[in-house]
């Protein structure tokens, strides 16, 4: 996904909206962090003030660079990485790149998939908070496999019971670690 392209026919290179938004949010974070340090004694404030100042400066420079580029006339060359991050692409075979790129998955997923996925995860965390990890885990496994992966009833039952049992055996029985318990925990 990392290719050079020119934006023929346009006189201005518009920066990616995402970069502008992330830059602005970072600017707000660094600004707030810097403001917070003003109430602290110098010994406690020195380092946070220094790093929030550096962060603020870098973000301003970054946004300034974006603005400068957008004002530059003539066709521009951009690194086409939208939906294709540097960190997670593949290698020697360019044909494979798109299919294995995690960023591409995020970029290409529709609103429906996003909402469904976030609802599933939100439900798991809510169930864990309410009933503890065992009930939440077994229920989530059963429902997700049944409705998210369309598996058979028996498959879902066996999987969820084995998963819950294995976790209990490993963490509670052998290692004796406390696991997340819910406010209505009954196990």
């Amino acid at each position: 996904m990392s290719s050079i392209r020119t934006t023929e026919g346009t006189n201005r290179h518009l920066p990616a909206l995402s970069d502008v938004l992330i830059g602005v949010v970072s600017l707000l974070i660094f600004g707030a962090a810097l403001l917070a340090t003003l109430d602290w004694p110098i010994e406690a404030a020195r380092f946070p003030r220094f790093i929030s100042g550096i962060g603020l400066l870098c973000t301003l420079l970054f946004l300034g660079t974006l603005a400068f580029r957008s004002l530059t006339t003539g066709p521009t060359v951009t690194q086409d990485t939208e939906g294709g991050p540097q960190e997670s692409q593949t290698t020697e075979d360019p044909a494979d790149e798109e299919s294995v790129d995690v960023g591409y998955v995020f970029a290409s997923a529709g609103a429906k998939e996003w909402v469904q996925t976030l609802l599933w995860l939100g439900a798991f965390f809510l169930l864990t908070y309410l009933f503890g990890v065992y009930i939440a885990g077994v229920t989530f496994a059963f429902l997700y496999l049944k409705y998210g992966a369309s598996k058979s009833l028996v498959y879902c039952l066996v999987y969820s019971v084995v998963l819950g049992g294995s976790l209990w055996m490993l963490f509670s029985y052998f290692l004796g670690l406390p696991l997340p318990s819910g406010i209505f925990d009954i196990i």
């Binding site: 965390f125 990890v133 885990g137 997700y144 969820s160 976790l167 963490f171 997340p180």
Partner: peptide, 22 residues
């Protein structure tokens, strides 16, 4: 999707067990 329930559980347990804190 078959791996998801196991991975989500492990992430949750692994994270919580650091300090036993939500």
């Amino acid at each position: 999707p078959v791996l998801i329930p196991a991975i989500v559980m492990l992430l949750m347990v692994g994270t919580y067990s650091v300090n036993n804190d939500y």
